[in-house]
């Protein structure tokens, strides 16, 4: 058997919709590839992928391995796990990085056991050890207060899922060589899970939004003014965990450790107390404005502009001020 070599990145797509975090990871992988002289391999599964192939091949991979099959159009835990296992066995990459999304975490958890190998979860840093070339990652735990440095001690490929927004996606001059692979039909057909129905609406990319307005429990779930204000300043809307728990908006809009980490230049936080798991999600943001009626709320320890007031009063005044500008 050949040696395990190269850095592979699972390029997530679902029904032709690319998971942008894949490109962030690919960009990071190409930096590491250059530094450690390892080939970078993108792995893309799906169906009718021409547009995606063109896009993905510009993000620093040396090779882009593509498996197209009608049954891979949508993510299927069984079909994807078996197809990935086949590709991994064929290419034997030393490292395998995936986005820390629902589908890729599902896939990674199965692959790690299948290959009896290490897997670091939702990491916020990926590196390779200079000396022994082991995969080194930073893993946040305990609600984001503590970060553990985790190394792979055994198994190949050395795996990690990387939190979306951790790295910046940058196109490169290099264009990947596209390799179309086909896998034995029974690998895809032996699945035990069948898709019956699917409903998705387009998601704003919160992790890349320049401005975000966050609604906390203090809004009581009334997002009308929050949305109006966000619209006026061209901001995306996010929520804290209690609002997502209440089911007012899908969890995709939740900011914090179990949700999205923001990188916005400006963030408004209305009616959030400032729990550590939420603060974690805004740690990398530029200017943070917080409005809360409680002067002692922890959010005021972690923002730039603190406003002790009723959030609805402030929202109304902001909207009025901004609208006045429009007419002036």
């Amino acid at each position: 058997m050949s040696e395990w070599r190269g850095i592979s990145v699972f390029i997530e797509q679902d029904n032709g919709e690319l998971e942008r975090a894949s490109l962030e990871i690919l960009t990071r992988a190409s930096e590491l590839g250059k530094k450690f002289n390892e080939e970078v391999l993108g792995i893309l599964l799906g169906h009718e992928l021409d547009n995606l192939i063109r896009e993905v091949s510009r993000y620093g991979a040396d090779k882009l391995v593509v498996v197209e099959h009608p049954d891979l159009r949508h993510y299927n835990s069984d079909a994807y796990t078996e197809t990935m296992a086949y590709i991994i066995n064929k290419y034997r990459p030393r490292y395998l990085l995936l986005p820390a999304t629902r589908n890729s975490r599902d896939l990674a958890g199965r692959l790690a056991v299948k290959f009896r190998t290490c897997l670091s979860a939702h990491v916020i840093m990926v590196d390779i050890d200079e000396k022994d070339r082991k995969l080194v990652t930073a893993v946040p735990g305990f609600g984001g207060n503590i970060v553990a440095t985790v190394v792979c001690t055994n198994g190949k490929p050395e795996m990690a899922t990387v939190s979306p927004g951790t790295y910046e996606a940058r196109p490169s001059d290099k264009e990947a060589v596209v390799i179309k692979e086909s896998v034995p039909e029974d690998i895809i057909k032996s699945r035990r899970i069948e898709l019956i129905e699917k409903k998705v609406s387009p998601m704003p990319d919160l992790s890349r939004a320049e401005k975000v307005v966050v609604a906390g429990l203090g809004t009581g779930g009334d997002l009308e003014l929050v949305k109006e204000f966000a619209n006026l300043i061209g901001a995306a809307v996010g929520v804290t965990r209690p609002l997502a728990d209440m089911g007012i908006v899908p969890r995709d809009y939740q900011i914090g450790t179990t949700g999205v980490s923001l990188r916005a230049k400006t963030v408004f936080v209305f009616g959030a107390s400032g729990a550590p798991h939420f603060i974690y999600g805004i740690r990398d943001c530029g200017t943070i404005v917080a409005v809360n009626t409680d002067r002692e709320a922890p959010i005021f320890e972690n923002c730039d502009y603190c406003i002790v007031a009723d959030l609805f009063d402030i929202l109304k005044a902001l909207i009025k001020e901004l609208r006045g500008e429009v007419h002036a």
């Binding site: 790690a112 009896r116 190998t117 290490c118 897997l119 670091s120 946040p140 984001g144 207060n145 503590i146 970060v147 553990a148 440095t149 985790v150 190394v151 792979c152 001690t153 055994n154 198994g155 603060i279 974690y280 740690r283 943070i288 005021f300 320890e301 972690n302 923002c303 730039d304 502009y305 603190c306």
Partner: peptide
């Protein structure tokens, strides 16, 4: 198959407040 080699506290950066 994984080992924790170091733990550190993730402190949010200082804000203007």
């Amino acid at each position: 198959l994984t080992a924790v080699t170091e733990l550190r506290e993730l402190r949010p950066r200082e804000r203007m407040r």
